[in-house]
Nucleic acid binder design. Sequence first.
DNA 1: CGAAATCTTGACGGGTGTCAACGCGGGTGG
DNA 2: CCACCCGCGTTGACACCCGTCAAGATTTCG
Lengths: 243, 243
Amino acid sequence: MRGLGLHGALSPEDKALLLGLELNPKRVSAGEVLWQEAADVDLFCVVKEGWAYSYRNLGNGSMQILKVYLPGDIIGMRDFGFSRRLAGVAMINDGVVSPFTYQQLFDLFGHSPALASCLIATTVRQQAMLTERLVYLGRYAAHERLAHFLYELYLRLQRIGAIEDNGFAMPLSQEQIGDALGLSAVHVSRTFSMLRDEGLVQRDRQHVALPDPDALARLVEFNDTYIDESLPPAFQAFQKLER
Amino acid sequence: MRGLGLHGALSPEDKALLLGLELNPKRVSAGEVLWQEAADVDLFCVVKEGWAYSYRNLGNGSMQILKVYLPGDIIGMRDFGFSRRLAGVAMINDGVVSPFTYQQLFDLFGHSPALASCLIATTVRQQAMLTERLVYLGRYAAHERLAHFLYELYLRLQRIGAIEDNGFAMPLSQEQIGDALGLSAVHVSRTFSMLRDEGLVQRDRQHVALPDPDALARLVEFNDTYIDESLPPAFQAFQKLER
DNA sequence: CGAAATCTTGACGGGTGTCAACGCGGGTGG
DNA sequence: CCACCCGCGTTGACACCCGTCAAGATTTCG
């Protein structure tokens, strides 16, 4: 709701439709699988508390984590328009999710083109994060991948108010971080040590701090276009028109 | 039009809206840049002839190609909802594209929720291809990346009738293939030789043939869920309802 | 026909994976 | 409360895939 709501002032009916997506909160525990690869696509989810990740189990025995979901993110749009799930989704820690159905999405499209275009914009933004990851997997070394990953988490967490003293809780294991970055767990450990020695990252068990976020941003040449929340003028004009 | 049209029978008005996107065909030549990174987002395009690719130029001097577009694909949805382009797009060979505007998309959303959801489905499908690439960049070796890349092209070209005798024209240079797969041009050459020696891929200048596509599919454990075109039952029900 | 781009092949080095051993902390059961 | 175990992180040794550089062959294009 926050992510979409910021994308422009919404009409009361639109707000009601959005809130309808969050009516059925459900407790989920760490490690719980929300759905597996190739399962039928029935539900989507809003994450209300906790972290989740989508993943693929590969034929060579390894895993690739596709995306980490934080509170406020929508899970499952990856499978919109498919009959089978393209990826599994599991909780990283305990949390709360609100499932909603295909039907609710269709209702929303039917009643509010403005919301539909916002939802596309949100989906495209998730794709942009995926693209950024792809770039780093293709063309950057381990320390840049990790630095970028941590800095992106930092920005996303900052937006939802989960940063304190430049630090945040990090429930991911180093093996999971490796699965997200295309690295082995061993090398993630080595890379953390390297970043620590350079004074860029402090880590104590499930806590990470970035003493100098700006230095980190410079190291990875962070391009924040893709994480920007504002919509272009054409969008706002369209939404006004709709109302 | 074909990609979307197959996603369910459309009403005449919907067809007219879609055709409206292809009214202004424009010749473009090999190497021509349709737009650069960070340019204003004004237009989207349908590719009618030729191949294109989206790319990012990186601070370390290298390039990452994000996606190769074939005739029938929509270019630019990556930037929908952004003010600035996240990636540049250039033509690989001579071709024809049909640009259309934000306004045309909004009109389409306003008039046809069914089309809007189909367009989301198409966007999600592009994301699925990107995801597949991400998986291969993260967790597979050079020969598997190249084999997967070629086999995916093979399937996409087959759909638009561009395969003859298991072979197709390949306008991409090995350097460009490397930029797509996160490899150096030199290693792409070595990897082609390896696949040729194993009898999986034949290549002669700008022509590639896959003597045994099924063997290639097995090698890369090709999962064709993500490239499947059919929409789930819930979708079709929605579209009937709309009409 | 000449020049630039592209492809091929070899030599070499470095980044990263794998294997292994070890330490640490937290949870579990006695 | 303690012993035990197991998951997780750390560190070292070693191998190998792939990047880089370089030279030459081939093709494409002006």
